[in-house]
Design a protein around this nucleic acid. Structure first.
Lengths: 191, 191
DNA sequence: TAAATACAGAACAGTTTGTTTTGTAACAAA
DNA sequence: TTTGTTACAAAACAAACTGTTCTGTATTTA
């Protein structure tokens, strides 16, 4: 890739995330991004069709990596009901989030919350399916599988939001324990 | 209140909800509302400072009533773990929603989802506190009370979203059963 | 009937958007 | 090094939206 292109692209992303840490997504104009990135108007539109596409690409960079990493983990005893959360993918996710690459926590906890949360959740669903549904762990529960998948994904996302809104007072381990305590009882029925 | 004022206000609300059933909130301009309501530019701004304030007042009209009604219900055995959902406030809420006053379901299920869902959830939290927390039902559970309140509220809101996204295939009774099945096991510890 | 109020219409400056045009600098390959 | 390509800047553009101000008219209320 052309050095110029790469440079410009990174300048746009940097400006965008910088603005997102101060303002709501909907309050940021393309003009703001152009000014902050210090590039020409034409240049922005050469890279991104609209502000929405820029957002989408940012989300992909942020979340695809995290989820893909978690997907690659060995499937196993992710929720041995004995209480240890150490093996859980969810603990892995929380630890990964805590590293705060690209200020991902800032985005997830700010007013932009909903936008990124939605993207996070849709990716997370795939993970939940691969961890639970594909192993048949949801098959004989008393509830519809699709409802459970949605419930588990939503609950984890809400747990993350709650954690961040509290300035991450608890350790990832504690939060994982809370989360697993809410979903494990539902899956117990398979005896 | 002046007949003219009332008429105008209702015209604005009507135009706004009509537009919301077709477009995303962020895609609707004040100009759109003015044109649809067929009123003067000055008139709109005499009634609402901004589009955001209009949204806020719409939310208040829609959700405050629903939650307040539910809050007024007699507190009792809302989730007797025997499985009957008949007495649950949540069943009452679902039935109320299903009446679809002011096309509230359209708003909750469209792309505007997040905006109304957020408002719905914050109101619902008060209800959950009054139904559970104030009765001490969350006190001796193994999880922090604030985490549980958030979890219950979020789960119900997500359940509603899920229900709507499926075009309400299930009955309110079935959905209530699903929902209670996810939260009751968590509260069982009080023996 | 008189004063107050709600409204319409038009005009306004300011901002944003997305496009076009023209020229310049950086690049990659010969 | 030269040549053709690509990325960029700068400026101008029409179109749309925002929020305000002004003037005049119709409705309400007292």
């Amino acid at each position: 890739m052309d050095r110029r292109q790469k440079k410009t692209r990174e300048a746009i992303f940097k400006a965008f995330t910088e603005l997102l840490s101060k303002k709501n997504y909907h309050q940021i104009s393309v003009q703001d991004i152009i000014d902050t990135a210090d590039i020409g108007r034409t240049t922005f539109y050469a890279h991104f069709e609209t502000k929405e596409y820029l957002l989408k690409e940012l989300c992909e960079e942020l979340f695809d990596h995290i989820i893909d990493t978690a997907m690659g983990l060995p499937h196993g005893h992710y929720h041995c009901s004995c209480g240890s959360a150490e093996d859980s993918v969810f603990l892995h996710l929380l630890r990964h989030l805590q590293e705060n690459d690209h200020n991902i926590l800032g985005l997830l906890s700010s007013e932009n919350n909903e936008i990124f949360i939605r993207y996070f959740k849709s990716n997370l669903k795939k993970l939940v399916i691969s961890q639970y549904a594909e192993n048949g762990k949801l098959k004989d529960a008393a509830l519809p599988e699709e409802y459970l998948i949605n419930h588990i994904s939503s609950s984890f996302v809400e747990t993350v939001s709650w954690w961040l809104s509290h300035k991450r007072r608890e350790t990832p381990e504690a939060v994982t324990t809370y989360f697993l305590a809410t979903i494990e009882p539902i899956l117990q029925e398979r005896g």
